[in-house]
Nucleic acid binder design. Structure first.
Lengths: 338, 338
DNA sequence: CCTCCGTGACGAAACCTTTCGGCGAACGTA
DNA sequence: TACGTTCGCCGAAAGGTTTCGTCACGGAGG
């Protein structure tokens, strides 16, 4: 493999008969350059096959052109499947695509044991997906002056640098849909894990119930064992004197066990019990019956996050939170039984 | 936000009362350094809070310390779920983790429309997941002298730089298991899409059948519409005069539709029909009944890929293909009906 | 006493790009 | 003609690290 020394900007310059400064200016769209010269340079770049070395550029300009994505911290012992893989994967892929679209690259950063390692990434900015309440990583990165944007909000934060789902709105959407389909006693399976997404849903649900003077019926489950704890919750719910005729199951992984437990208890979905899931995924679509779910639109979220981070890196003072509306995907599990 | 200029190696050097060369030598374990001096330098590094700038290091040494992972090209129109997200996500996360463990970083590279863009990534090496047969990306990267390792093999390649599942072995494992559980007519739902994984499975299946003088029963489906085409295939299979009593459904997404279609046709799983899936995932585990599947062990695969690539980057001539044994996870869908 | 060699440390070049300030020419105006 | 301004382009420095070759020192061997 005879690997020639890669061409540098100097090669391009001499090929085009201009100075390196001019080449640099052309490539970066800075300075003043005669249109003809510009064309010549561009042709030379192509001809020589030159690409600016990212490291050199980064060294000089202080901007590496790389964003890091810090994946949500999900408990996944080796060999175990990640919960929520559908959503996460879509998010990750979309972030990468959006980064590339804006001529950047996306680095995947697993949550380090030591949060301070994040500072050493040497990237222009960091996206933190699903921060916990009072997330340490945020504090550390902010302290180091590294631009951060989060996907979903840390409730204690007010700086506006995040992308969020309209949790309250989408909760209402779900409940209204269920009511429209004839539900009269809607239960919520949620969690008290430290994510805003959970607490906001519970709040919205409670308010909604109050507005109609319905009695809220909430079950909090352990997000680390969503399947077993959700199943237990459902069994208890169905044993009530007046059991729910609809369930909104939010935590990842819960809806399927709800379906299973309900079926096992002899309830038919949707005839005896309607079911809505808080995050959509292939799994739900292939379930029997297919389960109505909230599509959180990870692709749009990713795009918004990259944009927001780009603006923050560029020095914008504030850009306000970006809200992405969820979409309710109705499937057989909520076909009305009116 | 008063962001002090980040400390450089020079600051460390003057703090420790040595030259920058010495600091560099200590940090990289090169050159000769007196043990006492070494300690002093290490202390200084900590004290000053210095971390080598990756870009500077990369510029000088020509090694960026970054690997790129090129995700499998799955058809995913926006808003559609990625097939196989469980496996992919595990793979991605594990690659990132393995990269970090070896003091590197992982860049996520979506397949560009123009394959030559891959050359411009400016990374030390590239991992291509699930290359197609005769993958163009490979040709381009090899041509540019960029080290590549693939996950799963391109059959036309013989250079040994890949990590592969023991497809033949695992196919035998599946079939033997089914036979042991009492199956007598095992059908295969596969694909003729251009991945070695498919063709090798078909070959192994055929051989296995020949060995027992069983009649092979193969249905090839469209991997881009696995659900509908798998369902159709199953319906046809079940209408045969002597329908199969077990199905090995390989393409991503197929097993669940097989289950659905079979149930719809009035067959009970596993009593009337046993079912095994070619790739494990959360979905299968939560299905009803849970479906036996091959765990391809993405975590081990990722680790092997990173290792292999590291060796290739380091200049090793060859390291032979790395084979990761799949594991059969038996679930209710193949509980014997003897 | 002189030479040789190993040890421990260092100075300066090199890596490739961006950026700052400057310079000559052309042009417009008085 | 003299002067000011804009245009188009350039030279050289800077950015932080690694690496190559060199150097001072002290002990061993002749």
């Amino acid at each position: 493999m005879n690997r020639r020394r890669a061409p540098t900007i100097r090669d391009v310059a001499s090929f085009a008969g201009v100075s390196v400064t001019t080449v640099s200016d052309v490539v970066n769209g800075k300075g003043r350059v005669d249109p003809d010269t510009r064309k010549r340079v561009i042709a030379a770049v192509d001809e020589v096959g030159w690409r600016p070395r990212r490291s050199a550029r980064a060294l000089r300009s202080g901007q590496s052109g790389v964003f890091a994505l810090c994946l949500p911290q999900r408990d996944h012992s080796v060999g175990d499947w990640l919960l929520n893989a559908d959503y996460d994967m879509a998010l990750v892929a979309a972030c990468a695509a959006a980064a590339v679209d804006s001529d950047r690259q996306l680095l995947l950063a697993p949550r380090p044991k030591d949060v301070t390692d994040l500072v050493r990434l040497d990237v222009d900015g960091v996206i933190i997906a699903d921060p916990q309440e009072g997330d340490l990583a945020l504090t550390v990165l902010n302290g180091a002056g590294i631009p951060v944007v989060t996907i979903e909000r840390d409730l204690r934060r007010t700086d506006g640098w995040w992308v969020e789902t309209d949790t309250v709105g989408s909760t209402y959407m779900v409940l209204d849909h269920l009511a429209a389909q004839g539900a009269e006693r809607i239960a919520l399976i949620g969690s008290d894990a430290p994510w805003a997404w959970f607490s906001e849903t519970i709040e919205a649900y409670t308010t909604w119930c109050e507005e109609r003077e319905w009695r809220p019926q909430i079950r909090l489950i352990d997000v680390n064992k969503p399947t077993t704890s959700a199943a237990a919750a459902v069994r208890r719910l169905l044993r009530l004197r007046r059991p729910p005729d609809a369930i909104f199951a939010q935590p990842q992984g819960a809806p399927l066990s709800v379906l299973a437990a309900a079926t096992a208890a002899g309830r038919r979905v949707p005839d005896d019990l309607m079911l809505v899931a808080g995050i959509d995924g292939q799994t739900l679509q292939l379930a029997h019956p297919p389960i109505t779910a909230l599509d959180l639109r990870p692709v749009e979220i990713a795009r918004a996050a990259i944009d927001l981070l780009a603006r923050r890196v560029a020095g914008a003072d504030t850009a306000g939170p970006e809200v992405v509306e969820a979409k309710l995907v109705t499937r057989q599990s909520t076909l009305g039984h009116v």
